[in-house]
Structure formats: structure tokens, C-alpha cells
Design a protein around this nucleic acid. Structure first.
Lengths: 362, 362
DNA sequence: ATCGATCCATTTATCGATAAAGTGAGCCAA
DNA sequence: TTGGCTCACTTTATCGATAAATGGATCGAT
């Protein structure tokens, strides 16, 4: 320590007698650069870089001097420059169909938090629940140089047709299943729906309707939830009435409301409804009220997701509660791992869940 | 056209007989660069840049050739490099207290859409409704080189103490008022709350409670909404009972529920409640149900924001509906303008609103 | 024929950071 | 004493794009 290799002209806090030119070079946007910090601390900018990135090979004394210079100058790294040189952005993309839907807002909050703990920022893309939007999100994420992408895919079923994804850290979150080709944190779609349906049956329901989204192929959320429903009915020896299977164009409150109205208007007797998501269940709840049916006295209702609103409706909504925090943490963990080790074999998780029994199935 | 200035060696689609070196230089991360496109099209990379950025000074024939080369090579601009050189990122930051709250999710969706139309991406920061978080968001946005920031500030009342903001394109959205020092798209806090309270009075309510957030200073949302409430009561000749003024620690559903319970338990007679936000109103609705009071028969209830859920509760919620789309569009427009012209005088907007009369005040 | 204006495209010099290679002083074993 | 090793920094050569300056035709006007 205490080398005196550095002459007086480069002592800490002094400006090196550099030519005018080196001042004018970075007159840029009035930003403080590493060069400035280096000059202030009397070291090279590479040393500043080493301190900023917490690499070793920097002596304690010099490190302190640099930190002090950073503090005094108000220096902030220029992320673009870092990215350009290192190829890393520190940003993870999160692509969701619609941030406005409570479930995705909820999920996003957890992802942002988990990513923050790992030192990543999160940029949100809205895909509009269309396959095209989801493919776009992948393309965008490369354009913007996200280090990786968490894709909450709903529609995108032929990802192999989009060459953009090759070798890119991509984690599927939620619904879709791609046969093990990607890291995937899945919802307990089948298991959860089965548990929900079984719960209704155990409460005495015998005419249980299910309100799902459009069934587009055999691997997606809708079909899996369907399967859980059918399995539960079979197990309880309840017959299947096709008139009680309802599908929606989108998973919105409005669609749920309309479905409930049509269900009641159709004249079929029902005493229980399994809704594909809580958002839809909120609509169903409203639709049943529109038709003068009481929940749970006339019809029992159960949802899926456990969005915050579900605990506050009147009556409060029973639901399948996947551990969203757990899902977000696993997803972030998986992208982070894959960014570091692109060739690790893919991992499939299914989120744990519990049934939240509230007033709508009392 | 049809210049033959370009020799055979640089004809379109041909590779220039460049040394091996120039291939190895950008072996980087397997990305296609402008250099590659330029070589393919037989032009300089500056020309490619001009085409990509739609600048003029490029002939039609060459432009076509470059576009074709871009298409064939699958080129995408490297945003980091562009940013480093030009100082622009094309990203606007949106800082909100909590993306999970429906109101902010709703708003974010509109901002993302409006920004997209102006060619900007949006990155979301969560501030946790704390002044520190909001100041952090400003600092972050500079670190990440957002071109500008839309800040939905709740707590940050002394922005002048944070030097970070000087000369930075910053637009306040929603609650706070900074005396004209920033561009500001404000909620119609006072006007809206006054209209809501008047509406309750006109429905016959005489014991109208208000449930607000914590009143921290005299310019923020809470106090403005308070003022609107008081003004309405005065105008209708209704006395003010301090026992009917309730304040919450945060604007959550849970807080609303507790407030409603305490309000009822306190034994004071009430026949109307003005809630500071719809989210709080959802909680109040639930709290009143907990205590066996019917809405609107026993107590009428009105909220503020018109979040999507409000139309689907039982009973559905009357509310003040500011035009969120309008707000998002103005906010994006203002940042965009300020990015282009940093010194333009500040602009203050107050959003238009309407009363949505639903079942909770029938 | 000469000059300037106009196009179109190319060259040059960076933007701010980092990977990788280089330097030199001190230290230890042979 | 000398070669080999560490340490603790410094130098060098980029990453991919763009602003600004430069080059060289072509054309109309004087």
C-alpha cells in the first residue's frame, strides 16, 4: 500500500495536467464518465471499472479513493456503453398479454421484486394475448437487448416456427407447455381445477358448469383445466353434461358476466360454477347477481388465481391459489441461470397451490 | 439512376473482397451489424444508418438495395450502440407506486399504448408509494438512460431537494402538484370529489363520511379531495362532523375494509361514504357487508377512478371516472415534447371526468 | 468555361465502458 | 543471482452506431 508511484500531478483529488482536448472530448451530454472519476481519484478508468463492478485486484486504499471520487462526482454508469461492450443489459423482459388484468399485474409485481433482488431490471411488454404479439415480444426483446425474457404465453403454440428464439434465454411462465423445449414454470392447471371441482362436489353440487377460455389446442391452459374438471367429475361419479361446458373468447370480466347470463338463461339447472380465472369469476358473480341468483345459496362459485380482489368481493370468492411469489422467483431464477449457462438442460416446474375457501362455496 | 460507379466487386448481394480481418472483427455475439448489411448491399454503413433512420439523402435505388439487405440478413439495430452515440434510448420510464393496484395497471396499459404510437418503449418502476422510492425512480431513470420519466407521484413533495431532476424531461401524472415547476397531468381531485359528494347529497344523504389517505401536506391528492368534499357539503348546507372524516395509512382494499368496520363500530350514524379511490371503495363495500349494512339501501357509496372492477362488483360501484386514456396520452405527449424541446414552459392539465352512476348510489 | 448549389454517398472521429493483454515492482525458491 | 509468480494497476483495442465533415458528380446560370 501507500505506493508513491503516483506523482504529485496525479495525487487523489487533483486533476491530471491533461491537455484541453481531453476535456472537450467528453463534453457530451454533461454526464460524469469513468474518465472523470479516474482523473479525480488519480487512477486509470479501468481501475474505476473494476471498483464499480466489485472485481478484485484493486487495493483497499485505492478502492476507497475511487469510491470517494464516485460519491463526490455523482457518477452513474452508462448502461448503454456497458451493454455495447459487454453484451449484457441487466434487463429482463416480461411479456404479458395485458398488464391491466389483475392477475398479470400481480405477477409482474412479484417478478419485478424477485428480479431486483438478483440485480436485474424488468421491462414489460404487452402482447395482447395474440400469438403475433407474443412472437413480437421475443423479437423486441432481442432488439432491446434484454438479457432474457420471461414470456407469459397464452396463444403462442408453435414457437418453433419463430427462429428468433434459438439459443436465447427464454422462460415460459404460466400457461403454455412446449414439451420440455424451454424452461417452464407452469400453473397447476389440471391439479388445481380438479381440486376446485372436487371441492364443489364435496359441498354437494351435482350440476357443475365450467367456464373456460377458447380451447385452441391440446396443450394449453384451457384444455388442461378442462381435464382437471372432467377428472374430478369422473372421480365423484358425476355425469358430464355438454350443456354445462362454456367457453369464452377472452378471459375478461365482461365475458364472464355474459357467460353467466347465458348459462342461466339457457334454463339448464346449475348449482356450481368453476371459472377459468378469478377475473372471469368476478364477471360470473356479477352475471349471477344480474339474474337474481344468490351465491352460495343457489349456486356455488370457485375461481383460479387468487387475485387480491377475490378476498373482497361480496360474497368473497373461493379460488385455487397458486403461489405466485414462488412462480415469479423460480422464473427469475431460471432466466438468471440460463443467462449465465445457456446450455443447461431445461427445467419444468409446476407451482404449488392451495384452495382458498371463502364465502362463495360455503 | 443506374450509376456504374460501383464496380463488380461491390455489386449488390456480393461480398466486397475485404480482408479476413474485417470478418473477425465483429464476430462478437453472433449479431448482424450495420457493417454486415453495408457489405451485403455494397454501400457504406453510414448509408445503412441513413436508411434505417429514414433520413433523406439516399437515392431510391440504393435505399431499396439496403432494405433488401436488411430483410435478408435479419438485421436489428443495436439499441445500446445507438444510445451511446446519440444519447437517446427510445425508452420512457413510468414510475408508479404499485403496478399491482388496478388503477396503476389500468393507467400503465394506456401509457404503454400511447407511447408505442409515438415510437417509445416503456419501462415500469415501482416506487412503493414512498418518497424515497420516487426519488430513486428518478435516479434510476437517469442511470438507465430513459429519455424521460412519467412519475405518478404520491408522496414526493419536496422534489427540489433532489438535484437529480434538473433539466430532465419529467412529467408528473396524477396526484401531486408542484406549483407549475413540472409538466403535470392532474386528476380532477377537487372537482371530482365535490361532484361525487354532491351526488350523494342529492340522493338524500345527510351523514356523509369520507375515507381518505393520510393527509401529509396541503398540495397532495388527499387534501384536494378533502376540499372537494367540504365544498360540496357547504354548498348543500350540510354540517361537517369530524367523526365522519377517516384517514388511512395506505389506499388498499384492506385499509378500506377496516375503515368501514371501524366507522360502523364507532356507532356514528352514516348514510353515505365517499372513498378516496375505487380500490379503497372495494374494501369499504366489503367492510359494510361484514357489518351487515346494505348498499345502497342503508349506505350509499361512491369511489374515484373507475377501475374496470367497479362495474362488476355487487352492487356495482358508482365512481368518478377521469378519462385515463386522455391522461396517458397527454402525459406521453408532454414527455415527448419535452424530450425534443427541453426548455418549453411547463404545462398543467386537469383531466376531464364524468360521474359513473351505478347501483351503489341508486 | 467557371462557379455555386444540390445530391448522394463516404470518411472520420467519437460516445463510455470493458475484455484481454501488458507492465513493473516485490517476493520466494533454487 | 536469476527465473518464475503474484499483485495491483495501466494500456490497447474494440463493442455498433451516428454527427459532422468531406468528396465527387451533375446541372443551371452567368
Amino acid at each position: 500500500m501507500g505506493r508513491d508511484k503516483l506523482g504529485a500531478a496525479t495525487a487523489p483529488g487533483q486533476l491530471r495536467p491533461a491537455g484541453v482536448k481531453s476535456y472537450q472530448q467528453n463534453a457530451g451530454h454533461g454526464m460524469v464518465t469513468m474518465e472523470d472519476v479516474a482523473r479525480l481519484a488519480g487512477v486509470s478508468k479501468m481501475t474505476v471499472s473494476n471498483v464499480v463492478n466489485n472485481r478484485d485486484g484493486v487495493g483497499d486504499l485505492v478502492r476507497q479513493r475511487v469510491l470517494e471520487a464516485i460519491r463526490r462526482s455523482g457518477y452513474r454508469v452508462n448502461v448503454s456503453a456497458r451493454t455495447l461492450r459487454s453484451g449484457r443489459t441487466g434487463v429482463i423482459g416480461l411479456a404479458v398479454p395485458d398488464i391491466e388484468l389483475p392477475y398479470f399485474g400481480h405477477l409482474a409485481a412479484h417478478v419485478i421484486e424477485a428480479a431486483g433482488r438478483q440485480g436485474f431490471h424488468v421491462a414489460i411488454e404487452q402482447t395482447g394475448a395474440a400469438a403475433a404479439g407474443e412472437a413480437d415480444a421475443i423479437a423486441h426483446s432481442r432488439t432491446l437487448h434484454f438479457d432474457g425474457l420471461i414470456l407469459s404465453a397464452v396463444e403462442l403454440d408453435r414457437l418453433d416456427e419463430h427462429p428468433a428464439e434459438a439459443g436465447y434465454p427464454l422462460v415460459m411462465l404460466g400457461e403454455q407447455d412446449f414439451g420440455g423445449r424451454f424452461d417452464h414454470v407452469a400453473m397447476p392447471n389440471e391439479e388445481g381445477t380438479k381440486a376446485a371441482t372436487t371441492h364443489l362436489a364435496d359441498r354437494g353440487c351435482r350440476r357443475i358448469a365450467i367456464v373456460t377460455g377458447r380451447a385452441s389446442d391440446d396443450v394449453n391452459m384451457v384444455t388442461r383445466r378442462h381435464r382437471g374438471y372432467l377428472a374430478a367429475l369422473a372421480e365423484r361419479g358425476i355425469g358430464i353434461d355438454p350443456a354445462l361446458l362454456f367457453s369464452l373468447d377472452d378471459a375478461s370480466m365482461e365475458a364472464g358476466r355474459e357467460a353467466a347470463c347465458r348459462l342461466v338463461d339457457s334454463g339448464h339447472e346449475i348449482d356450481g360454477v368453476v371459472a377459468v380465472t378469478d377475473t372471469v369469476a368476478l364477471g360470473v358473480l356479477r352475471g349471477l347477481a344480474d339474474r337474481g341468483l344468490r351465491v352460495p345459496e343457489d349456486v356455488r362459485l370457485i375461481g383460479f388465481d387468487d387475485i387480491p380482489e377475490s378476498g373482497f368481493t361480496v360474497p368473497s370468492l373461493s379460488t385455487v391459489a397458486p403461489d405466485h411469489r414462488w412462480m415469479a422467483e423460480r422464473a427469475v431464477e431460471l432466466v438468471a441461470q440460463r443467462i449465465r449457462a445457456p446450455l443447461r438442460p431445461t427445467v419444468q416446474y409446476i407451482a404449488p397451490f392451495e384452495l382458498m375457501i371463502r364465502e362463495s362455496t360455503r
